[in-house]
Simulated assay, not measured.
Amino acid sequence: MSRSAWIVGTVLCATLVADLSRAQQPPSGGIYTCVDRNGRKLTADRPIPECLDREQRELSPMGTVRRQIGPSLTENERAAQEVQRRKEAEERARVVEERRRERVLTARYPDKATHDVERAAAIQLVDDVTATAEKRIAELKQQRKGFDTEMEFYKKDPNKAPMTLRRKIAENEDSIAEQQRFLAGQDQEKRRVHQRFDTELALLRKLWESRRAPALAPAATGAGELAAPAASR
């Protein structure tokens, strides 16, 4: 055997021995420990399969706790956990949005007088639309009187009345009915407006009160501090 071949063989043999030595050594990571379902305390150099359904602790070589590993979840458990996370996220978003609306509401209505002014304006708008519809009904009824006067000539036999006249009377009746339905809708709209402002006012009263409470507390404290020296004199 040549000297060069002998050197190559020696290097390969040394490398193989080093690889085998490293393979037999435990991982350089931490030590895993847990108590299994039977109450046994287990220790290993890697996550313990018998404790996948429970918490494990990873210890450093010095014995201090590096981290805690939660139990591995089944697919159904992971799905349930994700649903719970979404619910919690939605609830947090709802609370944030609710607080934002409350800030906007109190900025828009700093006191009851401001709220009352806007309520009155909203109701007035409904009343103006209602008045327009009532005026239209009065006009249609006046128009109907003229048609009725024409129909007097055909009182004995209404079927002899001209088709155009009968069509105008039918259209007039339909228009009056439509305006009356619109008026009924405006009555409901007015109730909705009042209900909305009543709901807002109930919430605003609480918000106004909560804002006044912190301001009153220091004042009350200051009054107590002034009263104490007075009592000592």
Rank of each mutant, 00 (worst) to 15 (best):
P158V: 02
T164F: 12
F197G: 05
R166P: 07
W208I: 03
A217R: 15
E189P: 03
R167C: 07
L204Y: 00
E200V: 03
R192E: 11
A227P: 03
A217W: 15
R196Y: 14
E173P: 08
A223G: 09
P162S: 07
R167E: 13
G224N: 10
R166M: 06
K160P: 01
Q195L: 10
A220F: 05
R181Q: 14
F197Q: 12
A219M: 12
A217G: 07
S175A: 15
K160D: 03
K206Y: 01
V193D: 02
A170T: 08
S175R: 08
L183R: 05
K190L: 01
A223T: 15
E200L: 07
G224M: 07
E171G: 03
E173C: 06
G185W: 06
P162Q: 08
T164G: 11
Q179C: 03
P214C: 06
A223V: 04
I169K: 06
T221D: 15
R192D: 15
S175I: 06
N159E: 07
A202H: 05
L203H: 05
E225L: 13
T221I: 12
K190R: 14
D198P: 06
G222K: 12
L183G: 00
A227I: 10
L216I: 12
R166I: 02
L203E: 06
L203W: 08
R196T: 13
E178A: 11
A227G: 01
A161C: 02
I169P: 03
Q180F: 01
L183D: 00
T221Y: 11
W208E: 01
A170H: 14
W208L: 00
V193A: 07
L226W: 14
A170F: 10
L226S: 09
H194T: 08
Q179W: 02
A217C: 15
K190P: 01
Q188S: 15
A215N: 09
A228C: 05
R192V: 14
I169A: 07
N159M: 11
T221L: 15
R166H: 04
G222I: 08
I176M: 09
F197W: 12
R181M: 11
W208C: 00
H194E: 15
A184M: 03
Q186E: 09
A184R: 00
L207G: 00
G224D: 06
A227N: 13
T221P: 05
